[in-house]
Design a protein around this nucleic acid. Structure first.
Lengths: 340, 340
DNA sequence: CTGAAAGCGCTAACAA
DNA sequence: TTGTTAGCGCTTTCAG
């Protein structure tokens, strides 16, 4: 079944297709009030919706924004995407969300597909530290707005919206030092990118670290458990942990539980992102109980991130000459002391 | 900048556009091996990608699936969407994910937009108990495959993939009874739909309930806290809670903590979906501590849900005559006894 | 002011 | 076997 088209309305009202198009698109074209009203009325009566595909083909713009993230279920991405989707839809843009699974090939496929759909803008948290940067450059040069979010590529000219990880990490590490921690372990992701390196740099700014206290793992609980166990077996006077992301926390808790080290009382910790404890069995539960008091959290401002991203896109798409600087948003440190 | 088009290739190779189209689309058309190779080679050399917009306009199919859910950040939706996206992309479909915010108007807007983009299929967890069913019917009649997921509309003819909530709820409630619970409180969502009513029905199948022990709240922590406090103030010999969804758990824990009722030792509970405890402050932490042992969880099989959904779409799109029955997937009850 | 007409890149029916 | 051609529904230019 066909949707109602401009032609149908033109036929019904006895005016030209052009006239209908002009009226319905509110173009500043003079036309008789009589006709205008008739056109608007018929369009409404028949619930006319422009065929966005035909329009895109002609305009070479789809009214859509592509969003490519490594994983839409972890960290702050779900929330970021949700906020973005709502804001962009309010501005008349559809959002095409893609999972790159932190895999450059997969990301490339998605980018090519998005491109051949004429997206107007692309928001990306690049996979594998920007291997696809050349492709991104081509996309950008072909007229699509490219904006990095969360993960940015320092050697590329793309604008970005991210968190000022270095400053917050410095503050977080300083807090650990203030708690009497003399040996800071840094627990981070094996797969690196600039935004993560910023955090590590921030910690190094605040406290002196030996290379072997930097533990980089795949975000896989078993591996983290093992690496942390090894680290914690040493006599640990004055030890503390800085977590690059609290999504690594479960593994650390597993290790602490095994070694019967209560956190944070016997091992102060601090990390990025709110700890999310999913109870999927008695094992989980036992590990969570090793956390005996609330720990401070470095929380990124996801709402502001979405806000800035949406603003950049909508403003710049409406007025390509608008100037923008990249944004590094401050994170907030929640020093949540127990009040029990 | 324009992308490479069929015409460009035709010009470069000196054959007709049709020939190029046929070769590149692997249509069973006889053509000289010489030419075929040349075409394929030039296409690859210039990194040709078909203009999907033009193709959609012609075919009236976009190679895209719309997915509309009430909220893509809560419950099992993020995981479901992720799995779907990966599977569908592997089959050559792009996924358009939309948030209806459980708001019929917003949902309607999204549906209209999706429709005017010629999606091939629509996966929807309908908002507000299916107010937009007539629109869905129109979409279905206009040739777009419509499939309900998670939330289904019993009075409509759309196929669906959901969880057999009634059976699992019955088993869960029976477990409570087995634990010596003689008075089951049912904590559920105020906004109803069939899949939720199924759970309530299941509980009623297993235990007799008085109407006033059914507590229906907005999924808002403060309100839940208050309602649960009221319920728990009565002398509560033999009380237990059935949670329609463990996303309501935080409010219950707040109330239990206030009244110093340890869960589950003094108040057995069971509920749908894995409990997710986000620590966003000392208050949260204190409330989570009132949970002193693991509790059983009724876990929906999200992977199977995504699997069935993707299968339905891909098979039925490839072969519209294929017959399918709606699916009610069994949930799994995780009786996670503590081993500490 | 108004409308006819060209064409976006692709597909498919039809000629040659 | 191959190529020509007529659109898909919309926008936009250019005559009337």
């Amino acid at each position: 079944m066909r949707l109602f088209s401009l032609k149908d309305i033109a036929k019904k009202t006895g005016v030209s297709i052009t006239a209908v198009s002009n009226v319905l698109n509110r173009r500043p074209i003079r036309i008789g009030d009589e006709k205008r009203r008739l056109i608007v009325k018929t369009a409404r009566d028949f619930n006319y919706r422009p065929n966005l595909i035909a329009r895109s083909l002609k305009r070479k713009k789809a009214g859509a924004i592509g969003v490519v993230v490594p994983d839409m279920t972890t960290l702050h991405y779900p929330e970021l995407i949700r906020l973005l989707e709502v804001k962009l839809f309010a501005h008349g843009y559809q959002t095409l969300i893609c999972n790159s699974q932190d895999n450059a090939l997969c990301e490339k496929e998605h980018l090519e597909t998005l491109r051949s759909r004429f997206i107007d803008g692309l928001v990306i948290a690049p996979a594998e530290n920007g291997i696809n940067a050349p492709l991104l450059r081509r996309i950008s040069e072909s007229g699509t707005l490219v904006l990095c979010v969360d993960i940015y590529l320092p050697r590329e000219k793309f604008h970005y919206v991210t968190t000022d990880g270095r400053t917050s990490a410095r503050q977080g590490a300083a807090w650990l030092a203030g708690k009497g921690v003399s040996r800071v372990f840094y627990l981070g992701e094996r797969q690196r990118h600039q935004a993560l390196d910023d955090r590590l740099a921030g910690v190094k700014d605040a406290v002196s670290m030996s290379q072997k206290d930097i533990i980089l793992c795949a975000p896989e609980r078993g591996e983290i458990h093992e690496r942390c166990r090894t680290a914690l077996r040493d006599p640990l006077s004055g030890a503390g942990f800085f977590l690059e992301s609290n999504r690594l926390l479960p593994g650390l808790l597993d290790a602490a539980r095994e070694l019967r080290i209560a956190i944070p009382v016997n091992l102060p910790i601090i990390g990025f992102d709110s700890p999310v404890l999913v109870i999927n069995g008695a094992e989980d539960f036992a590990s969570w109980r090793i956390l005996t008091a609330p720990v401070p959290v470095i929380r990124q401002n996801v709402a502001a991130m979405a806000e800035e991203t949406a603003k950049y896109l909508t403003v710049k798409l409406a007025k390509p000459t608008a100037r923008f600087a990249s944004v590094r948003l401050p994170a907030e440190i929640i020093f949540q002391e127990s009040k029990t």
